[in-house]
Amino acid sequence: MAGDLISIAIGAILVNNFVFARFLGLCPFFGASNNWNNSMGMGVMVIFVMVCSTVLSWLVDTFVLIPMNARYLENLVFIVVIAVFVQLVEMIIRKYSPSLYKSLGIWLPLIVVNCAVLGVVTINAGENYAFSQALVNGLFSGIGFMFALLLMATIRERLDLMGVPESMKGVPIAIVVAAGFSMAFRAFVGLI
């Protein structure tokens, strides 16, 4: 069981990294990876929302949808769960910690339509993961996403300083860098 969890964790970070192998969450990835602070904020929020959504949707799936034989509604139910959860978190943070809201809250509405969150939940359901497996997958997919964000942020800060050619500024060069990582990550495929 522990070995199984470790291989899920390694898989989520290296082999099936959301950004470099699975292509999930690219819009916020290219949007927020322009500097370190944005990447930190986005990364932390994504990990938090991913873990909580994983737990919530696992519960809903196991105790409501499967007994009712209604798994075909998973997509609709999951996205509503995620949207409502995020909205609640936004309201709570805004009420109790305006400073936290100012630094991290701006990312929240974007996270609802972040395909990484619905993606991890859909993968968990598709693989019929047990609770522990789903939790590990959710946590480490988020960590892998944040790792990719921070990597890209440091690189883009350096490239801004160096000055890349005019047509390459911003997202185009970031996509080239992502291609480089995507090739390098291929070597991890045999790991699990």
Partner: peptide, 8 residues
């Protein structure tokens, strides 16, 4: 070259 050449 896409990065702008040597050093970048």
């Amino acid at each position: 070259l896409l990065f702008g050449g040597l050093g970048k």
